[in-house]
Each structure stands twice: as structure tokens, then as C-alpha cells.
Design a binder for these strands. Structure first.
Lengths: 335, 335
DNA sequence: TTGAAAGCGCTAACAA
DNA sequence: TTGTTAGCGCTTTCAA
């Protein structure tokens, strides 16, 4: 494989000149530039990314740390991210975290290994310690679907979304409304619970702890999955006549499991029990599931734009942007 | 950020010794090793990945090139890949290709930029030129869901799968069987067509070109998407009484669109028209879609294992492995 | 406008 | 067992 020395020799110039030629430096005559570029083509030369990165202190890669992904949620987000990234000619290093809490290890690696110019942390909470490391070093980082005072973040209005979803059920006449949530150590899950309770409260409805089921409450997983939704709904239905007439579920994928549970129990949706989800993944449309839509593609895109801005301009004010959710009414709550 | 020189100074040793300490070299005394590691901890030192890569000629990253992904197909594959990768402590550089044909540009980058130790090419065809470059340089590459004589590959038995799917429809008594395929420049699409035709032939059924619709025939996209499936089915249904009584569709996601088209036309599945898909994505279960299952997670895992083997041992024999598909019968073909 | 040379932060060969 | 030094392949001063 050709190096810059090979090109220099072939073109009869020094390596500095080659460097100038391929980096559009003005400090080179058109004639020699042509000669160098010809040699580049002949040798099919492309700079060694590591060497270039080491010398330039720029890698043109960004890292993204996310929970081992399953489901359309991350797919949509990734698409938005990819879209923006390719426009900036940036490459993507994917760190996927399998255990909750292991995010910090990746953050530390990102910070020290210098493999990427910046990092996107998705749906994962950042520890105080990590946050201050990033703050101090000024290393570019942007949070997506997560929040931290001192760091740029892009989130959806989880609280308001949950509030709207619950309100929708209330407006349909339901008085006994349950919720199936994911593990509360997940920030969105926690905030969605708040929104749900607020809506109940504002409508003068009492919060009944028995109507709240946390998926995978003590498990390894975070609760955002179909099986957990299935079991959570079974638990809710076991209350018999005391069971809620409507349920707000913290994610569509859980709702999918929940719908199955309802059907297997011989109950009808929405006549016997109304359901509303959150996320608006593709599946929701097929299932006729009412849900809260989030502009994931757009979020991914904007997060990247912000990150690149931060890479260019290290001392920007911290910013937080929250995206509105939108109620999508389908048949699962009879609305 | 601390460098190896900082650590050396702090521990009162040379940089070579630091290097030996952190790389488990036997050529160092336990005492100094401890001292060095203490300094490492105090300074929170982690080696600079680029510098290390440049010196070692090893990056501990692998690249994966795939079509801009949508759908569970790549998710499942990616999960298998991630699983194996994390066991090898390898990082993942994701190149996602938006335009068919642009794969070659990425392959060339991978080869020259030296950012990764090896590459996985997914669902994308490799050109003769690229193939021979890789052959010559011995740069580790493995194909997944794609095939090339000279390169390791992991595929599903597309031909046999399509054959089985079609045969299943035949065994159900159908005589006029259509197919909705994706663009034929996609290798799997092409092979699935072969399997379909073979099955017809073996059953003594004539192939009727009017019963074959190619999704996105002249479009930008590859045809593997819902909208295209929808339109393709509409086209098939427009044949009225001449229309097929059963259709084999080259992917579940197209089948999803097709089912919608059938329903909107007021026809029933499977009574009026029987459908069978390919892939067995999660959605298929919800839709009650009969389909051909492929062991994607396993494929991803094995592809990585093979790639790492090739990275360690550059002169291995070329190998090809083909994974069996499995017929999953649901309600969409009345089986 | 150009070439030479000093880094970038590491590994590995070579001496000591 | 250890320190020194020559690369790895590039960018970027600094002179010329």
C-alpha cells in the first residue's frame, strides 16, 4: 500500500508538498499540484487515517453509545444520525452497551482513547463523575433521550406526552386508568410516570398503586420489551373487576405484548379495556395502537448537527431542546 | 490528558517499561510493574488508540458495510455481530451505504485508510475489481447475505427457501402462483426468483411473466420496502380474474404492504389470495404471515468469528457457509 | 513555492 | 530487567 513517501518520490517532490496538494493548501503551485495528484491517482494513494488523525488531532469519526438496540426506536434515530453524518463526511463508531451502568466505561474510553471527535449518548444516563470529566475537558458530547444539566441534550417531552396520553383516556370517559411502565432507573420511564400521575391528579382522579405495574421490576432488562409488557398486563388483569378500564403503556413494544395478553384472556380492545402506547413505532400502525409519536429522525439529525457545531466551536453555551410528541389516535382506545 | 511520557516520569521509568507494564509483557519485574500500574491509575491513563494502532498496525476495530438499514433484518444480524464482537473486545465502525453501487467506494476506503482490521460486507455485491484487490492484499473480509467465489461468505439458502415457500403454496392446491420480487440487482432477490421458478417447473406449472412483479423496478430504492410491496400487489390484483390465487413475496416487509393492498381491495387472505413472505421479521408474527425464517443472529455471530479468525491467520482457505431456512406456517396461506 | 525536520503517542528492536 | 531509539504515516512549522 502506497504511503505519502511513495507519492513524493514518484512526483519528485517532498512529502510536505504532497500533503499540501491533497489538502487543498493554497501554498502550492498549480503545476506541482497537478503532478502530485497524478502520482496520487497512479498509486491509488489514500492517506492512512490513523496517521492523519494522530498528526491532525482530528479523526472525523463520532462515537455513539446506546443500549443494545432492539426495535424501531433506535433504527429511526440511527437513520437521522446517519443522514446528518454522511452530509458532514463523518464516520460512525458504534458502542453498544449491554448492561445498564456500563455506559460510564464507554464514556471513559471515548474520552481517553481519542478515537472519535465527539460522542452521542443515547437513552443512557451519565454519571456525575463522567459529566464533570466532559465538562472539564470540553470534549464534545451531546445527549439524546437523556438529560443532564451541564450537557447539551435533545429529548422528547416525555412528561407532557404521558400527560396527553392519559388525558386522552380520561376524555374518553375512563376513570380507572392503569399504567404499565418500564424500570424507573430509565429516565424516560420515570418522567412518563410523572406525567401520568399529573394527569390523574389534574382530573381529580386518585392514583392507585395497584394500577401501576413496572415491567421487569427486579430484572436485568430495562422493561422496554414485549414479554414484559405481556406479563405486566396479565398482572393488571388478574385484579378482575377491580382492573382498570384503560391503560397507558410506556412503550409500543410493551403494548404489543399487553395486547396479546388481553386477547388471550378473552377480553376485547377497546370495549373491555382501552390501551394507549408511546413511541409510534411502525408496528403500532399494524396493531391499530393509539400512541404518542416522537420525531426520532429529526432528533437524531439535530443532535448530530449540534455535535458537529461543538466540535468546530468548543465553547458554546449549553443548550437543551425538547421535542413535542403528537397523539396518534387509532382503534386501541376506541377514540 | 496523560500520555505514556507522563506515566513514565511519574513512575520513574522509561516509556518502554510503561508499555511493557500495560501490555502484560513478561519482560518486566513485578515490582516495577506495580509501580507503573499505580501511576497509570493515578493519572487515569489510557493509551491513545490512534498512536497505538499506528505503531501496532492493529486497530481492534472492524468495519461493517450495509445498506442504509431499515427493518428487523439488519437489527437481528447486527445483534449477532455485536454479541460476537464484544466477546472479542472489538469495536464496530459502521458504514451505511445509501446508494446501491456505492459500496465499492467504502471498500476502497476500508482497504486504504487502515482504520479497521477487517470488514464485513452485508447484503451488498462486491465488484470484480474490489474482490481482486482484497484477494491480492489479503485484507480480511467476509461477506454476509452476499456471495463471491473468492471470498468467505455466509448466506441463507435463498434458492431453496424460495423453492420451499413456493412448494408450500403448490401443496396447498394453488396452480396460479405469482411472485413479488425486489430489484434483481440484489443478489438474494435474484436467487429467490430462481427458486420460485424452479418450484413451478418441478411441479409442471408454467411460469407466467405477468404474474411476476418487481418492486421499484426502475426506482432508486432496492424494492425491499412496504410501499413497493403495496403497489406491486395492486398491480397483481389489477389482473382481476386472471390474478394469481397465491403469491410468494420476497420479503416480509413487502408482504406487509401487499396485505394492506389486498385488504383495501376488499379481498380476503387467505381465502381469495394466499400469501407467503420471506425473512420472518418480528412483524410477520403479528400479521399472521407465513414466511421463511432465517437464523440471522447466528449468521452475524459466525461471520464475526470467521473474520477474527482471518485477522489472526491471514492464509485460510476460502469458505462458504449457507444457512438453512425454515418454513413458518401462519394464517396467511391457510396452511 | 518548496524541502527538511520536528512532532503526534505509541510499540518493538536493540543495547546495556 | 530496563532505557534508548527508531520507526508507524501523517501535518505543520521553519528556513530557504
Amino acid at each position: 500500500m502506497a504511503t505519502i513517501y511513495d507519492v513524493a518520490r514518484r512526483a519528485g517532490v517532498g512529502i510536505g508538498t504532497v500533503s499540501r496538494a491533497i489538502n487543498n493548501s493554497p501554498r502550492i503551485s498549480p503545476a506541482t499540484k497537478d503532478r502530485v495528484l497524478a502520482a496520487v491517482r497512479e498509486l491509488r494513494y489514500q492517506p492512512h487515517a490513523l496517521a492523519q488523525g494522530l498528526a491532525r488531532k482530528r479523526t472525523n469519526m463520532i462515537g455513539i453509545i446506546l443500549p443494545v438496540f432492539t426495535g424501531y426506536f433506535y433504527l429511526e434515530l440511527l437513520k437521522g444520525i446517519q443522514y446528518a453524518l454522511s452530509r458532514h463526511k463523518l464516520d460512525l463508531l458504534l458502542y453498544s452497551v449491554d448492561q445498564t451502568g456500563k455506559a460510564d466505561a464507554f464514556l471513559s474510553r471515548v474520552l481517553h482513547e481519542k478515537r472519535v471527535d465527539g460522542v452521542l449518548l443515547i437513552s443512557l444516563q451519565i454519571s456525575e463523575t463522567s459529566a464533570s470529566s466532559f465538562k472539564q475537558t470540553g470534549f464534545p458530547i451531546v445527549l439524546v433521550d437523556s438529560h443532564c444539566e451541564d450537557i447539551d441534550s435533545f429529548t422528547v417531552e416525555n412528561r407532557n406526552g404521558a400527560y396527553q396520553a392519559t388525558r386522552h383516556l380520561i376524555s374518553l370517559g375512563h376513570r380507572r386508568i392503569g399504567m404499565i411502565d418500564a424500570q424507573l432507573r430509565s429516565v424516560p420511564a420515570k418522567i412518563r410516570l410523572d406525567g401520568y400521575r399529573q394527569a390523574l391528579h389534574d382530573a381529580g382522579l386518585a392514583f392507585d398503586p395497584r394500577c401501576l405495574v413496572i415491567s421487569d421490576e427486579d430484572g436485568e432488562k430495562d422493561g422496554f420489551n414485549r414479554e414484559s409488557g405481556y406479563h405486566s398486563m396479565l398482572k393488571l388483569l388478574s385484579m378482575k373487576e377491580n382492573r382498570p378500564t384503560a391503560v397507558f403503556i410506556s412503550s409500543d413494544i410493551q403494548a404489543a405484548g399487553a395486547m396479546q395478553a388481553v386477547r388471550e384472556t378473552g377480553l376485547r380492545i377497546p370495549q373491555d379495556i382501552a390501551l394507549i402506547g408511546f413511541d409510534d413505532i411502525e408496528l403500532a400502525e399494524y396493531l391499530g395502537l393509539s400512541t404518542m409519536h416522537q420525531p426520532l429522525f429529526e432528533m437524531g439529525k439535530q443532535a448530530v448537527e449540534r455535535l458537529t457545531a461543538r466540535i468546530e466551536e468548543t465553547d458554546l453555551e449549553v443548550m437543551h431542546r425538547s421535542f413535542c410528541t403528537r397523539l396518534v389516535v387509532r382503534s386501541s382506545c376506541g377514540g
